[in-house]
């Protein structure tokens, strides 16, 4: 019972894994992108449409990543090159992405993912690991997409904290002028990370339409992009904490359905609000225990003008 709950929590958390990670990269580059919801939808619809057209899972993933990156390109062009207001641009991107997805998704309702794609994402039990008692089944009997999430979290952590590129990116997020003076190519870094962040967010959307649901339905994300933006704070801009953030919230999202069956008389309405209550509690806790590593990148949300003081 508990094992099947954890298993479901991991799946429910996987779209968040990609979305949070994408947003962490973006915010580390000093940009607050509120367009996550829209970019996820773009990834979801393009991934699904590519799957239908090509019947090939890798093309579908590529398409989704490209769609997310395209959304991020709009965002980064406006906010990095033209230095427009990031909040407004992000919100506009969400509205655009939602409309784009509805437009492209016309006539896609009622179709299902081709068998070849479905088989590719079929749950696989990892040898040895899946036989760990209790946790094995919950963590290591999943679609390849979920494993990709595990790997990419660790890879992003190593990249951010153990490599020179990661150091440069963090420096840029803390003090762009100093990073610029140190000879880091600001533009290149910003574009590269916002775009790859966008690609990850697009993949998060594609997980919904290709694996989770897996059909196309309009507004398939139903607010998960916004949760991801909030969870970046929960994860304190550190990829490794996504293991907690995404899967905890995946679990909170579905725990009510499990408990309804156990005859525990706690109102379902309580579980409906649980993720949001927990978010508030976490925000309070993080702001009370103020320390350097837990605060956002100092440049977050600020446009950068070279030689402007």
């Amino acid at each position: 019972m508990l094992s099947s709950f954890l298993h479901a929590a991991v799946i429910a958390g996987t779209p968040l894994v990609f979305a949070i990670l994408g947003e962490i990269l973006t915010e580390r580059a000093g940009k607050l992108n509120l367009g996550v919801e829209g970019m996820m939808l773009m990834g979801a619809v393009v991934g699904f449409k590519t799957a239908l057209l090509t019947s090939h899972p890798l093309w579908a993933l590529f398409g989704a990543a490209l769609a997310g990156a395209a959304g991020a390109l709009i965002f980064s062009f406006l906010t990095v090159t033209l230095r427009s207001n990031q909040v407004v641009t992000g919100l506009a991107l969400t509205i655009f992405g939602t409309g784009f997805a509805s437009f492209l998704g016309q006539g896609l309702a009622g179709h299902i993912v081709p068998a070849s794609v479905k088989d590719f994402f079929h749950p696989v039990a990892l040898p040895v690991l899946s036989r760990i008692p209790f946790l094995g089944e919950a963590l290591f009997h999943h679609s390849i997409f979920v494993y990709a999430g595990y790997i990419i979290i660790i890879a992003a952590y190593v990249y951010l904290f153990k490599t020179r590129f990661g150091l440069n990116l963090r420096a840029l997020g803390e003090n762009t002028a100093a990073a610029d003076a140190a000879g880091i190519n600001i533009m290149k870094y910003k574009f590269a990370h916002i775009l790859s962040g966008g690609a990850l967010i697009g993949l998060g959307g594609a997980f919904l339409s290709l694996v989770y649901v897996p059909t196309w339905q309009e507004n398939i994300t139903t607010g998960r992009g916004w949760i991801a933006v909030a969870l970046v704070i929960f994860c304190k801009w550190n990829p490794i904490r996504i293991f907690w953030g995404a899967f905890l919230f995946g679990g909170l999202d579905i725990i009510g359905f499990r408990l309804q069956g156990l005859n525990i008389h706690i109102s379902q309405y309580f579980f409906d609000m649980l993720p949001y209550i927990v978010t508030v509690i976490i925000l309070i806790m993080t702001s009370v225990k103020d320390s350097k590593e837990k605060s956002p990148p100092a440049e977050l949300g600020r446009p950068y003008f070279r030689e402007d003081k």
């Binding site: 479901a8 429910a12 919904l208 989770y212 649901v213 507004n219 398939i220 139903t222 998960r224 579905i254």
Partner: peptide, 8 residues
């Protein structure tokens, strides 16, 4: 209307 929640 929430494809994910209904699936869950």
């Amino acid at each position: 209307y929430d494809p994910g929640k209904e699936t869950e």
